[in-house]
Amino acid sequence: MALVMDPAGDEIQALKKAASWRGRNVLEVGCGDGRLTLRLAGLGALSILAIDPDAALVREARKTLPERYRGRIRYQVGSVERLRRRRDQFDIAVLSWSL
């Protein structure tokens, strides 16, 4: 399918303005195939835990994860309600088209 999302990059520009990303620990909820995750990593996030309940999309995201981001991005299948993490862990949480 030939579909290009946001060719002008308005979405990532808005996110860039909304927060200071460099060195931050980020939780992305609803990462899908990782389209936005990679852009967030490009903004300088220290680490990104990206979750989505759709296992097929998470598989796709893992498959297309560039080598340079392997130490910083971790994809996980699941929902935020069932995420088992200690409290006060993330600097920024992004609801990616998921609320």
Binding site: V80, D88, D91, A93, S96
Partner: peptide
């Protein structure tokens, strides 16, 4: 879900709803 995110965020953490 928002309550859970509140718990996971550091004090002064940011929630971005896109």
């Amino acid at each position: 879900a928002l309550r859970k995110l509140h718990r996971l965020l550091k004090p002064d953490g940011l929630l971005l709803d896109l």
